[in-house]
Amino acid sequence: MELSNVSAPAASSTRLRLAQGLIVLFHITGFLGLAFSQDKAFYLKYTPLTLLLSAGLLAAFQLERGLLFWLFVMQAFLLGMVAEVVGTNTGLLFGHYTYGATLGPQYMGAPWLIGLNWVITTYLAGILAAYLPLPWWGRVLVGAALMVGFDLCVEPVAGRYDFWHWTGHIIPLRNFRDWALLALVMQLLFVRTPFLKRNPLVPLVYLVQLLFFFGLTLLNG
Rank of each mutant, 00 (worst) to 15 (best):
L93S: 03
H165A: 05
I171F: 02
A180E: 12
L210D: 02
A183F: 09
F69S: 05
P133S: 00
F36K: 01
Y131R: 14
E64M: 13
A10T: 13
W179H: 12
Y206H: 14
T98V: 14
Q209A: 07
I28M: 12
A60W: 03
Y99M: 11
A125P: 01
P133C: 02
L18W: 13
G159R: 06
L49A: 09
I23M: 01
H96W: 14
D162V: 13
S37Q: 00
K40I: 07
Q38T: 09
Y97N: 08
V140W: 06
A35Y: 07
Q62N: 06
L173N: 10
G91M: 14
V142P: 05
L201F: 09
W166G: 01
M108C: 11
T90D: 03
K45S: 06
L32A: 00
L71H: 07
A101Q: 15
L211W: 12
A76P: 06
Y161Q: 02
V140H: 01
L22T: 09
A145E: 00
I28H: 00
G168N: 01
F94L: 14
L78V: 15
N199I: 12
T193Y: 01
E64F: 15
R160C: 07
N220E: 11
L18Y: 04
D162E: 04
K40E: 03
L93W: 08
A55D: 01
H165W: 10
V6F: 08
Y161W: 06
